[in-house]
Structures are given as C-alpha cells and as structure tokens.
Design a protein around this nucleic acid. Structure first.
Lengths: 177, 177
DNA sequence: ATGTTTATGTAGCGAGTGCTACAAAGACTT
DNA sequence: AAGTCTTTGTAGCACTCGCTACATAAACAT
C-alpha cells in the first residue's frame, strides 16, 4: 500500500468526520492500515495532513470541473443563485463543513492549512470567472466580487443566518461600479 | 472564586490560544485554579465552553458598542471600509481568529457553537444597521448585504486572499437593487 | 546463496485528556 | 458546641495522543 492508495481513503474519512477527529488510529482504521504505517509513509502527522489537504483541494477542483454545466448564466444574480444551489447539494456538504475547519486552521496559522485554503480559493475564483455572464463588463473584478459575496453567504448559512444572506443578496443589484 | 470571576480569565486564555488548546488543565492554570475546580463550577467541559462562548459574545458586543464612533458614514463604501479597517486593528485579531473556530464548530454541529455564532452575527447585524448612511434607501436590507460582503472579505483575508476581496469590493458600487 | 532494502506487525512509552473518589478545612446554621 | 454545607487539595483512573523500538518476513541485488 502506497501513499497514493491511502490518500483517497483518508480523504473520505476526513470529509465525513472532520479534522478534529483525524487522529492517527482512526485514520489508519478507515484506510485499512495501522498508525504505524501512516507514520512510515508520511513521516509524521503534520505532513500527512498537509498532503491530505492538498489532495482534497485537488479532488475538489475536479468535482468543480465536473459540475461545470455548459450553459452560461445570463446575469450575475443567476451566477450566484446557481452556485449557492450547487453548494446546498448534499454531495457538497462534506467539502463545505471541512472548508470552515481549514479556514479556522488558516486563521490560527496551523501548518499547511493556509496553503490548502489559498489553493482552493484560487481554484474557485478561476472557475467563477469562467461562469460569468457572456456580456459582463468586468468578468475578472465581478468574479472577485461575487466570490466575496458567495463566501459570506455560505458562512452566514453555516451559523444559522442563511436568511440574512438571502435578504442581503435580494437587496442589491450586484452590478459593477 | 466564582464563575463570574473565572470567565474573564478563561476568555482571555481562549482568545489568545484558541479553542483547540482549551483543555481543562491549561484553562485552569490560566485562571489560577485547578481542573478539579473548573468541573466543580461548570459541571463538565461542554457547559464550560458554552458559558465561555456566551460570555465572549457578550464582551464582543460591548467592544463593538465602545468602538461605535459618533460620526455617521456617508456611503456604503465608507461603512465597509471603516469596518474592515477596524477589524484589521491588532486589538480585534484575537476575536477574529476565534471567530473562525466558532464558525467551524458551528458547521460541524459542536454543541454550543452555533448558538454563540448566531448571537454574534445578530449583534453585528444590529450594529451594522445603526452604521448605515443617513439617507440610505434600504438600511435593513443594506446592512444584511454589507454583512455578507464584509464577512466574505474577512474570510478571504484570513486565507491569504485579502487582495481578491479588495479588488472585488472596488469592482462594485454596493448600491441597492 | 548472501546481504540489503522495503514493508509490516506487536508492544509500549511518556504525555495529555475529561473526570471522579476521598478527604479535609472553613464558613454557616441551629 | 455540634452538625451541615461550601469550597478546595491530592491522587488517580481509564483512555487517547503522536511516535518509536524491535522484530520479522518478503522482495530484490550482487
């Protein structure tokens, strides 16, 4: 068994249980191996988690690509609505829950978290630019603006203020300066 | 020593070290007491943390009130700029770092976290409404909208994308629909 | 065939976790 | 003064943590 075989199994566990429960023995059990072998392959837990987060960022990007429909949205409102709908998808929930743990780790300076978070956001931003309406006057700036809004909305949703975000989005036209 | 004496000391520790390091013995040491006494006062760790988060939400609200300047902003851009500037304040950093841990816990369903997060956001939303420009056509909706943007910007800042958020904000007029 | 590298199992160490049992001192009540 | 209630200290339990020492078997190299 190699790193490459282990990472998908480890990722599945972390996505379902969170990083808080990601200690060596449970991780090993989920991957059908032993804590002993995890250390053997990854040297220590820190690099294991770093590798794991990098891997998860990668499969997240792939799942974004896969979800990218061919039809283009026609307004910024539509872009936001679609993405929020897609994020509400049951399949995306493990990613979202894990995401906030990564953000928290990044804020605290836990090694490896910031890099993973930065990669995920860069990926998402690029994807968003491709999703902007055809005739948008400023797709690059608009994508950054919508990313900020979307992430704010997602956070509010997670803390029980989904309604606040929804009403906020309705109260703006989302148009460029 | 009572709960009321302990909470400020516990809060100081958690603000500086995060909830990840908040185990009984370090907490007790920071408060000048013993793990034994923490359990005596709070019954168990779960209610200790819940009480502590509620207390922190309270002092956060107070610090917001204290920071509320008497001069009203004249545009929504100004409101956002002021708040982001205030949040960048060194004094606010412990709150911000802790905040994302609370969000992560809320997303994972850790008991007590969601309530604390919800309270903080409600408080912040109310405060924001009071900060809206004098002639704003929709202060309530605008506050929700700006809250979404601000929190999104703050998250992006924490994961190394402060620039993304800044450029996004510049690319919009933040005006109502 | 012999030696070396790679992969894996078993056992355990020292530190930390939340929490409890027991005891005792002090304050307070009657 | 005797008894009760509140507060605190000391020890420890059962458990988990990341990690390591040691041994062994298989694969490979010479």
């Amino acid at each position: 068994m190699s790193k490459e075989t282990l990472l998908p199994l480890l990722a599945a566990y972390v996505l379902n249980h969170g990083l808080g429960e990601a200690s060596l023995r449970p991780l090993a059990k989920a991957a059908g191996t032993s804590d002993r072998m995890l250390i053997y392959h990854f040297d220590n837990k820190e690099t294991l988690i770093a590798d794991l987060l990098a891997y998860i960022a990668e499969i997240y990007a792939q799942s974004l690509d896969a979800a990218m429909g061919d039809e283009r949205a026609q307004t910024r409102q539509q872009v936001v609505a679609r993405i929020l709908a897609k994020s509400a998808d049951e399949q995306m929930k493990p990613f979202l829950t894990l995401w906030w743990e990564i953000v928290a780790g990044s804020a605290r300076g836990v090694p490896g978290y910031r890099e993973a978070a930065e990669a995920v956001m860069a990926q998402l931003l690029g994807w968003l630019e491709g999703q902007m309406p055809a005739g948008d006057p400023d797709p690059a700036g608009g994508a950054r603006y919508l990313l900020t809004l979307i992430e704010g909305a997602q956070m509010l949703g997670v803390v029980g203020h989904a309604r606040t975000a929804r009403e906020g989005l309705l109260a703006s036209d989302l148009n460029p300066a």
